Simulated scan of single mutants.
Amino acid sequence: MVKAFDKWLLPWLRQSLRSSNAPVTDVMLAVCDHFEPFHRSDKDGAMRRMKAWQDSLPGITAAAVDHDGGGPRHTFFYPIEQYDPDVIQSLTSLCQRTRNEVEIHLHHDNDTAENLIRVLDQGKADLRRHGLLGASPLGGAAFGFIHGNWALDDSDPQGKGCGVRGELAILKKAGCYADLTMPSAPHRTQAPMVNQLYYSQSSLEGCSHHRGVCASAIGSTSKNLRDRDDWLLLVQGPLGLDWRRRKWGLFPRIENADITSANPPTSQRAAGWINAGISVTGAEGWRFVKLHTHGGPERNHAALIGGARRKFHQELGELASRSGFRLHYVSAREMVNILHAAEDGKGGGDAGLWRDYLYSPPPCLQKNDA
């Protein structure tokens, strides 16, 4: 597989040299799952996978608590082109039991802008019927987005997995509050911006997210950009080199915040994710750690709904206690809300106060509170 080092290694080195020495006061941890229960499976297999999650995830979320008294969060980015009412209803039930949320994932190829708009509208309607997706301050459906096959804004150099340029503006106008696709390394679609929270202006040239303006608490630029239809927020997960897991005992492997059974979450990895320094400029004490995984197929269940994850959350709580930071388990929506609060000058206190700052929870969770 192409490692894409030429795209991201030098930007990573430059960004590492500029990393902030600000003390870490709050860590927001979100697990963003490219959740595909139909991956190489039929309906019966998808429902068996849902049962495995129904049986195991509640125990994971009850086994640890964060600074706010809540358990670990898991955001399911469901591929809307694979909508099935039974699977989605099972997922809705699971979210109600565990206080988790569903966002939008999409695989498409050789697509058109007109069809993408139609598919997004249909996907939102499908999920909203089940009480899923949060709402914007104006009341419309709001969603986080992960692009299938990593090819956001037609960014695959082989021309695969998208076909739509100007995709960021289409997403923003449809109600997307942020894209959370990156990092994709070692895949060839990896963007040259790394370990950043930033806004990109949509362009018909494609690859719009390869450049952007960093989210900042200084001045009014961030607020102005987040209100514009042609700029979209990009939330990246940690990317770097892992010298502890060397190939052939010599070369570092890529640390891309992917959770797999072959590379499960650990407190050592967590320390590296935090040290990546992903934050809003001017509020560097709040660190944002977005992990990703593929939780549908059974191959990753051990790391996500098994003992490895229970152990990780225990160790992470101990790391937070030793290091003196407030740990917040967040959904993708809550992470973005806290990010916007940081932009608006709220970054000097407890980040957990701002989970619902702009985008409100999905109806299925609001009903659960009633």
Rank of each mutant, 00 (worst) to 15 (best):
L17E: 08
H34T: 00
D44W: 13
Q54S: 14
Q54W: 13
S56F: 15
L57V: 09
L57P: 00
I60Q: 06
G71E: 03
R73K: 15
E81D: 13
I88Y: 00
L94Q: 06
N100P: 12
E103N: 03
H105Q: 12
H105N: 14
T112A: 09
N115Y: 08
V119L: 15
H130T: 02
A135W: 02
F143M: 14
I146S: 11
D156H: 13
Q158W: 13
C162E: 03
V164N: 11
A174V: 03
G175R: 04
D179H: 01
D179C: 14
R188A: 13
R188P: 15
Q196M: 13
Q196T: 09
Y198R: 03
Q201R: 15
C207T: 12
C207N: 14
C207F: 13
S216I: 05
S220F: 09
L233K: 07
Q236Y: 10
Q236S: 12
G249F: 14
P265W: 00
T266I: 07
N275A: 15
H294N: 12
E298L: 10
V330P: 04
A332G: 09
R333M: 02
M335S: 11
N337C: 07
I338K: 00
E343L: 05
G349N: 12
G352K: 02
D356V: 05
P363E: 07
C364E: 10
